[in-house]
Write a protein that binds this DNA or RNA. Structure first.
Lengths: 106, 106
DNA sequence: GCTATTTGCAACCTTTTGGTTGCCTATTGC
DNA sequence: GCAATAGGCAACCAAAAGGTTGCAAATAGC
């Protein structure tokens, strides 16, 4: 579960929208996920493959249908391991912004 | 501050590394940020421009030098507004995983 | 003033990405 | 068995992304 794959998967708005759709209704089939998107089924398939490779969704085949399930674990992983790093930084950023606004530079 | 710009900015490992570098030492100049990277200064400039457009860094010119400061606010914004959405989802994902592992389907 | 240093800008190139079309396979339901 | 439905796979294409080289501009230091 490479973090890079997760970040790249989240970079595309269409893929985030697919996650949103699964968040609203989990276990949707490919056809269902295609509804409300202006792209072809094949394009959606590619997006879903990228999401699955990033472990953001898992799939389950049942007959001729394929169901898709959201897996939020990698997202939480990112929130915990990466985003958490920057939570204590705003103080410094703010003080540098203050310096900027006060015109102490130049 | 479009969320899309933030996600796209975070998608590239070189840019995340630049943020890491600023997190370790805030206020670095372009030259300083180039050290430890195998790409040219101009490539780093482009990455920094993308980070600045996503409001992930702010810059401050002082003489001929340009200092860069980390701005963690958009990252927190993402963590709060988007990642938070998926925090209560694992139960359903887990139950679907359970179904998969139990072999209830094909 | 002159030189070195730091950054900015533009053109260009290559690879990746997002999307399409076309066709094939596998189920379902009658 | 056969038509309809759901999905898989490959080739192809255009646009965007990531990087380079080359040169110009501005500032610092002597």
């Amino acid at each position: 579960m490479s973090m890079d794959a997760v970040f790249r998967a989240l970079a595309d708005p269409a893929r985030r929208q697919l996650l949103d759709s699964l968040h609203a209704q989990n276990g949707q089939t490919l056809r269902q996920l295609c509804e409300g998107h202006s792209m072809t089924r094949q394009a959606v398939t590619k997006h879903l493959a990228i999401l699955e490779e990033a472990n953001l969704i898992s799939t389950e085949k049942s007959g001729r249908e394929k169901h898709h399930y959201l897996n939020p674990v990698p997202i939480q992983h990112i929130a915990d391991r990466w985003i958490g790093k920057y939570e204590r930084a705003p103080l410094r950023a703010l003080s540098s912004l203050k310096r900027t606004l006060e015109g102490n530079e130049q």
